[in-house]
Design a protein around this nucleic acid. Sequence first.
DNA 1: TATGAATGAGTGTTCATTCAT
DNA 2: GATGAATGAACACTCATTCAT
Lengths: 197, 197, 197, 197
Amino acid sequence: MSPLNRQQQLDQIRDERREQIKQAALKMFARRGYTGTKTSMIAKEASISEGLIYRYFNSKEELFITLVQELMEEARSELENVGYLPGTPFEQIRTLTKHMLDEDNMHAFMLMERARTAEDVPEKVTQIFEGVSTNVLIEPIIPIFVKGQESGEFSPGEPRRMLSWYFTIINSLLTQDEIDEEYGLPDVDVLIRILTN
Amino acid sequence: MSPLNRQQQLDQIRDERREQIKQAALKMFARRGYTGTKTSMIAKEASISEGLIYRYFNSKEELFITLVQELMEEARSELENVGYLPGTPFEQIRTLTKHMLDEDNMHAFMLMERARTAEDVPEKVTQIFEGVSTNVLIEPIIPIFVKGQESGEFSPGEPRRMLSWYFTIINSLLTQDEIDEEYGLPDVDVLIRILTN
Amino acid sequence: MSPLNRQQQLDQIRDERREQIKQAALKMFARRGYTGTKTSMIAKEASISEGLIYRYFNSKEELFITLVQELMEEARSELENVGYLPGTPFEQIRTLTKHMLDEDNMHAFMLMERARTAEDVPEKVTQIFEGVSTNVLIEPIIPIFVKGQESGEFSPGEPRRMLSWYFTIINSLLTQDEIDEEYGLPDVDVLIRILTN
Amino acid sequence: MSPLNRQQQLDQIRDERREQIKQAALKMFARRGYTGTKTSMIAKEASISEGLIYRYFNSKEELFITLVQELMEEARSELENVGYLPGTPFEQIRTLTKHMLDEDNMHAFMLMERARTAEDVPEKVTQIFEGVSTNVLIEPIIPIFVKGQESGEFSPGEPRRMLSWYFTIINSLLTQDEIDEEYGLPDVDVLIRILTN
DNA sequence: TATGAATGAGTGTTCATTCAT
DNA sequence: GATGAATGAACACTCATTCAT
């Protein structure tokens, strides 16, 4: 194996480890919040030693901030792509909603939700959310919603306000975890009534 | 002052102090969660010394559990009284919703919501919520909802499921704090659309 | 009642209270040691409020030191009077031994013993015992013992050493409390064998 | 180094560290009692950080209880082996006595003595001593003593009572530390007079 | 004088972070 | 790069002492 390949291999290990830690941290932070998550839990969840985290992240705080930033970026990108989804405006927003409530994405949205509403997070995280409020994220959805209002799919009402409220609800549902064992989370079709009258 | 009055006076001080600590703790736990709240913060919020907390509660854990239990009891009692509110079923549930989202009751519902969904709380709190699920609390509202369906105020659908989802949404909104400064929490009339189609 | 009597009455109350506190403290310190005794325990034992102790003693430390000093003085005085007890030297030392092991004096000797051997006591108490070693206290007993050796009641051996050892044993027995419920503390006649061969 | 060796090495470090903490704790508890010993003192004595104690013991209380239990077990075992010591019954008991008063074993016996007589120890320690009273420990010594009585080495008297008193005295001497600098602890031959008349 | 609520320095314990291997 | 033992600052809690009544 050439030295170059050797280096590539090491880089790959590093990338995988880093991802592994972030996944474990995501799960724990989502469930237990920032203060409630011990670095030892993250290590255990990632099946690595406690010390190793610090070869990939400078601190628990940095790990948390990194997660939040990357998740925000992902979320922003997804919202920007809603317009390219197939179907009518109603179907596009319905798909987005489904996606947000999907079990696979849950932890990500849960973490962001907790990071946004709890006050025991690093100052910098608070700043991130102050800078990028829901309103900014909503921006690319507004024209879609307006088109839906024009076609009669959505009820009338100030678009930005209606969407802000709608996503506030969707977001807040994400912290629910799996509590109500009988009925689970509300059905997408029930939720979207908020926009359809 | 007679000995009796002296004792009464002391009892009153104790009651007031206890209430003062509970209010401060409620506020902090609601905002920052169980682990994220330091006892020193509670003391500062209550404007007392750190040690004094322990003349009224045996531990941070006991204080938290006490709060959750008492708030649960209050919530249960309020839900049981909805049937005696004035107006039609629709108006009764609208009033209840308004009440839950009211700023004065917010902290209480926020705390319960966080206590229910976060996993960094004392074991006993988890047990309380396992014992008294949302479904039990919903019980007294079901007949009201059914009456509303019969009169056409509410849309058809399995009552218990519809209400479970509805209150899941209301509850989850409570952790929002006052984040979206532009529009605040969704309007009651938008929320109740979930039940009215 | 004249002002003078009034004052005398108050003085008497003060004296009684002080004595009451010292008795309670003696009991607790003897049983639980200096660090192991909380001022609240002393107050409870004396059936007074926690604050009152501080109107009679400046601190827990001062209370402890006062006790030790007074008990030392008493002990010294008793040892000096052994020569005036009735009977032969053997009988005099036997009476002294009995007295030291007597239930009524136990707490006093226990406290002194613990104060002397434990290292968690105030510096000043250590100094008191360094200044007044057992050897000094033993002084007035030596001529009595020598007389007993001459009359054949006691076995030969360096008097000061024999007595030092003897009282070391008696003292150390005092910390025993009432542990061995079956046989209690050793009989005086068994103990005195140490001196009689 | 093979993985197996690596693990063995770690195990050895853990064992050594644990022993080191127990030795330091033994020394401090023996001298200053349970309440009088601060965990910081144990750490300092063991030349480790305060936090490290808690990787080896769950609490100060557990550390104390562990010590007492292990020392009790050792003591029991030693007493059971007295019959196998060389020499006559007198010589066997003389050897045991010497052993108990030996400087190296002193701390162990001192700690047990204080643990048994002071009332500021954890409930569980009190229970241990209630369960295993001195009388039980004495059991294996009784036949030895009886043999000595028969051969005339020991004076007559109810064996169990004589031994109970004898060991009460030996035990109580152990709390003496090294106070009487001039003569030290009583000579074994003086002590054993208690049994020989 | 007497009470007990209140304080805060100090103690036991936890946990993010470092470091020897 | 990986481990887990070790550290120490921070936190929960205790208790001697003070103070308003």
